[in-house]
Amino acid sequence: TGEEYIAVGDFTAQQVGDLTFKKGEILLAIEKKPDGWWIAKDAKGNEGLVPRTYLEPYS
């Protein structure tokens, strides 16, 4: 299990392996990579890379 984050903006996948999401979606951070791209999972179970700058902790 990971930590929940809320998307603060829309993001469209730029390449294969990225995860597209919309502002307000809750994402589960699976792995926090030091380069600023995290592996996350959305509510539908889709998994991919997301930019850290689009996420804020969800409580």
Rank of each mutant, 00 (worst) to 15 (best):
A40H: 01
K33W: 08
P57V: 09
Y58Q: 06
W38A: 02
T12L: 10
I39V: 13
D35R: 03
K32W: 06
W38L: 07
G45C: 06
G24F: 05
Q15H: 13
E31S: 11
Q14G: 09
I30D: 01
G2D: 10
G2Y: 15
K44M: 13
L27Q: 00
G45I: 00
A43E: 09
I39G: 02
W38T: 02
G17R: 06
I6E: 04
F11W: 14
T53N: 13
K22S: 08
K33E: 05
L49Q: 09
L19Q: 01
D10Y: 05
A40Q: 00
E31Q: 12
K32Y: 07
E31K: 12
A29D: 00
L28D: 02
E4P: 14
E47W: 12
L55F: 05
Y58G: 05
A13V: 03
A40T: 04
A43N: 10
T20L: 02
E47T: 15
G9V: 13
K32C: 07
P51V: 03
N46R: 10
T12N: 11
A29F: 08
S59K: 12
P34E: 12
D35S: 09
N46F: 08
K41H: 06
D42M: 02
Y5D: 00
L55Y: 02
G2S: 11
K41I: 12
E47R: 11
L55H: 01
L27P: 00
G24E: 02
K41M: 11
T20C: 07
L55D: 02
G9N: 14
P57C: 08
I26Q: 03
L19W: 01
G24M: 03
D42K: 02
A29R: 04
E4D: 06
I26T: 05
V50F: 01
D42C: 03
W37A: 04
Y5V: 03
E47N: 07
Y5R: 01
P57R: 09
T12M: 11
F21K: 00
I26Y: 05
T53P: 07
P34K: 10
T20G: 11
F11M: 04
G48H: 02
G36R: 03
L27K: 00
D42L: 03
Y58N: 07
Y5Q: 01
F11D: 00
D18N: 11
K33H: 12
K33T: 09
T12R: 09
E25C: 07
G2H: 14
G17V: 04
A40K: 01
Q14C: 13
E56T: 10
Y54P: 01
E4K: 14
V16P: 15
G48D: 01
G2V: 13
G48E: 01
K23T: 09
P51M: 09
D35W: 05
T20F: 04
F21P: 00
A7P: 01
D42Y: 01
W37L: 06
I30R: 04
P51G: 05
F21L: 05
T12F: 12
E25I: 04
T53R: 13
P51K: 08
E47H: 10
D42V: 02
Q14I: 12
A29M: 12
G2C: 14
E3K: 10
G9K: 15
I39D: 00
P57E: 08
E31I: 12
E56N: 07
G9Q: 15
L55S: 00
K22D: 03
A43M: 13
E4S: 13
V50S: 01
Q15S: 13
K44S: 12
V16I: 12
A13E: 04
L55Q: 00
L19S: 01
D42Q: 02
L55I: 08
K32H: 05
T12Q: 11
K41F: 05
L19I: 04
G2A: 12
A29S: 06
K41V: 10
I6Y: 07
K33F: 12
E47P: 03
K23E: 06
E25Y: 06
D10G: 06
K33S: 10
I26S: 03
N46G: 07
P51S: 07
R52P: 12
W37V: 06
D10M: 04
V8M: 11
L49Y: 14
D35E: 07
R52T: 09
L27T: 00
P57Y: 08
E56M: 14
I6F: 06
E4Q: 14
G36T: 04
E3C: 14
I26D: 00
T53A: 14
K44F: 14
W37D: 03
L28R: 10
Q15N: 14
V8H: 05
K22V: 08
K22I: 07
F21C: 04
E47F: 14
T1D: 12
A13K: 05
D10K: 03
S59G: 11
Y58M: 09
T53S: 15
Y58A: 08
I26P: 02
Q15K: 15
E4L: 15
L28N: 07
I26K: 07
P51W: 10
K41R: 15
G24H: 05
G2W: 15
K44D: 11
Y54V: 08
E56W: 10
G17M: 05
A40W: 04
I39Q: 06
I26A: 03
G24Y: 05
P34S: 13
E56V: 14
L55K: 01
P57L: 11
G48L: 02
G45H: 04
K32F: 07
P51T: 03
F11C: 06
S59L: 13
V8L: 13
L28H: 09
A43P: 08
E4H: 14
D42H: 02
K32Q: 08
R52G: 14
G2T: 11
G9C: 15
R52A: 15
P57K: 11
L28A: 05
V50K: 00
A40F: 08
G36V: 03
L19A: 01
G24V: 01
S59P: 11
E47Y: 14
F11L: 04
L49S: 10
G9W: 15
G2E: 10
Q15P: 02
G9D: 14
V50R: 01
K22N: 08
G36L: 05
I26R: 07
F21D: 00
N46C: 08
N46K: 09
K41C: 08
Q14N: 10
S59T: 13
E56L: 12
L28E: 07
E4M: 15
L19R: 02
K23I: 08
Q14T: 13
A7S: 06
A29K: 03
I30K: 06
D42R: 02
W37T: 06
A40D: 00
A13I: 03
F11E: 00
E3Y: 11
K41W: 05
R52K: 13
N46A: 08
N46V: 09
R52L: 10
G17S: 06
K32S: 05
N46P: 02
V16R: 11
P57T: 07
W37S: 05
V8S: 07
V8P: 01
P34C: 13
A13L: 04
T53C: 15
F21A: 02
E31C: 14
K33A: 09
I6V: 10
W37G: 03
A40N: 00
D18V: 15
A43S: 14
K33R: 15
W38F: 07
A13S: 10
E3H: 10
K33Q: 09
I39T: 07
R52Y: 14
E56G: 05
A29G: 04
Y5G: 00
T1G: 13
A13R: 08
A13C: 07
G45Q: 04
W37Q: 06
V50Q: 01
T53V: 13
Y5S: 00
L27C: 02
G24W: 06
E25D: 15
G17T: 07
T12G: 06
L27R: 00
A40I: 07
F11I: 04
Y5P: 00
S59H: 13
P57Q: 08
T53Q: 14
Q14Y: 09
K44Y: 14
R52W: 13
Y5F: 10
F11Y: 14
K33M: 10
K44W: 15
Y54Q: 08
K41E: 04
D42F: 02
T12Y: 13
L55W: 01
W38C: 03
T12S: 09
K41T: 07
K41G: 03
G24N: 06
R52H: 14
D35V: 03
G17K: 04
D10I: 03
I30E: 02
L49I: 09
P51D: 12
K32V: 07
Q14R: 15
P51L: 10
A40L: 10
D18Y: 15
G17A: 05
K22L: 08
E47V: 15
D18T: 14
E3P: 08
L49G: 07
K32A: 06
